[in-house]
């Protein structure tokens, strides 16, 4: 049957240019090749997120009255609803973790150097869009934590000079987080952001194929290569299988529950904290004055995005210790702030 379908297509479409291109594709082989699998792994987890997200959208209602109830309905009534929602929840966490590993491995192997500067910039934008997707999706269950997380997130732009109030109002859709915010976050989460990141990811992947994968400066003497098909893709498939096993294990061992519906009038509960990927922002806001904290994070993100243009040594094929230390400093800051947020309990 498969063979007949293949013959049917071959009779009508000439696949030989594609087959020739695939046959000549090679992937560099060296002691850091392991990091190449994280880009494909991110795409794999993203695909899981798209599929499970579409499935959840069949039952979800983006209104304050029905949002929490519809998620509860998915989890308690819909067949395997708890499983699909848990996969979507843990998938979001996995996706952010995998994209972070992909980004830092790219950074420390200096894969951003010429001619791949645009790929790096697009990659940083993709991370920002994925974090925004996580933020917009967080409100959808309409729980106390998701409500106050959104209040904080939509208040942050208020510190942006001139346009801050306009941006905040655009996000909230009214005087305070409410029905308008929920529909806006749902529209952003399910339509606007996916269109944006799918477009940018397509360009990112296209460039990776046109430019090929970067070999780290320390490994340039290595000339070993392996074929993309089937060698590399077989190993990539093994990585996907392993990741899927880990993801499903998390889903089975720690299924995501559903907190009670928020009462928007009541105060924020004690000990409220965001998800792990936003803890560094949370702790920064508690530690530094807002203008310094938010300004510092924004400036750091801009510098991070522009690193390929600042690191001239790497572009010239030389070691750039300063930028390696800059990367280490960023990781130390993120980890320190995250750990502090976990262990610090406010004493009143």
């Amino acid at each position: 049957m498969t063979s007949r379908a293949a013959d049917f297509l071959k009779d009508r479409i000439d696949f030989s240019p594609v087959q020739a291109w695939v046959a000549q594709r090679k992937i560099p082989q060296h002691k850091h090749s392991f990091w190449y699998y994280f880009g494909g792994l991110a795409l794999f987890v993203l695909t899981i997120q798209i599929i499970t997200g579409i499935m959840l959208a069949f039952y979800y209602s983006p209104t304050p009255v029905k949002a929490n109830e519809s998620v509860r309905y998915i989890m308690e009534k819909v067949h395997y609803g708890w499983l699909i929602r848990s996969i979507h929840f843990w998938g979001a966490n996995f996706l952010i973790a995998v994209v972070l590993v992909h980004m830092f491995s790219t950074y420390f192997t200096k894969a951003y150097r010429k001619p791949r500067e645009i790929m790096w910039v697009l990659g940083v934008i993709i991370l920002a869009l994925i974090l925004t997707s996580a933020f917009t999706g967080y409100l959808l269950p309409w729980t106390t934590l998701s409500y106050f997380a959104t209040k904080i997130g939509t208040s942050m732009p208020l510190y942006v000079p001139f346009v801050g109030h306009f941006i905040s109002r655009l996000m909230v859709g009214g005087a305070d987080v409410g029905a308008a915010t929920l529909t806006r976050m749902f529209t952003l989460h399910t339509i606007v952001l996916p269109i944006l990141w799918l477009t940018i990811i397509a360009i990112h992947v296209f460039l990776s194929q046109v430019l090929g994968l970067s070999t780290p400066l320390s490994q340039r003497s290595t000339r070993d290569e392996t074929k993309l098909f089937p060698n590399f893709m077989m190993r990539q498939a093994a990585v996907w299988s392993g990741a899927l096993a880990v993801l499903i294990s998390f889903v089975a061992l720690f299924p995501e529950g559903l907190a009670a519906k928020v009462n928007p009038v009541l105060p924020a509960p004690a000990g409220i904290k965001p998800e792990w990927y936003f803890l560094f922002v949370f702790q920064t806001l508690r530690t530094f004055p807002d203008v310094i904290g938010l300004g510092g994070i924004t400036l750091g993100a801009i510098i991070w995005m522009l690193v390929p243009f600042l690191d001239r040594k790497a572009s010239n094929g030389e070691k750039s210790t300063f930028f390696t230390l800059f990367g280490v400093a960023i990781i130390v800051y993120l980890v320190t702030m995250t750990v502090m947020a976990y262990i610090t309990t406010e004493v009143h």
């Binding site: 106050f148 904080i152 939509t154």
Partner: peptide, 27 residues
């Protein structure tokens, strides 16, 4: 009751006669 820092709703502490924001600790 909207905290002027990041917009969370403050809680009333009757023992101290003040308001606390549990999001970032403003009083």
């Amino acid at each position: 009751a909207k905290c002027t820092h990041m917009g969370c709703t403050v809680a009333f502490q009757s023992k101290d006669d003040n308001f606390i924001c549990e999001c970032h600790g403003s009083i």
